[in-house]
Amino acid sequence: MSLDKATVQNIAHLARIRVEDERLDAMVGELNAILGWVEQLSEVDTDGVPPLASVTGHGLPMRADEVTEGDLSEKVLANAPDPAGQFYSVPKVID
């Protein structure tokens, strides 16, 4: 499995990272080197082996259905790069 430029561009878009054309070749090479290296896992016989679900060995803890937070708007908006009153804002999205 070897990545080509188009695939790398597509991954970059899925990850929302702009990759300039002049960096693309290098990136294709780097990613292919890493993927080629991890390819050695195919040597391992994993027939009948379940994927590891967790290393903790305990069950999923649960919270009681209680409201534990008041109005935190000041805290959650404190670091917003372009807040508009009580809102976050982003460039216009067209549905």
């Binding site: 929302r16 702009r18 670091n79 790069p81 976050y88 982003v90 460039p91």
Partner: peptide, 22 residues
Amino acid sequence: GVRFGLRVDGDSLDEMYENTRA
């Protein structure tokens, strides 16, 4: 780039995302 940290503007939402993360 929406709720904290660096935002690099772009003409569209996706451009903003891609510029910010690049």
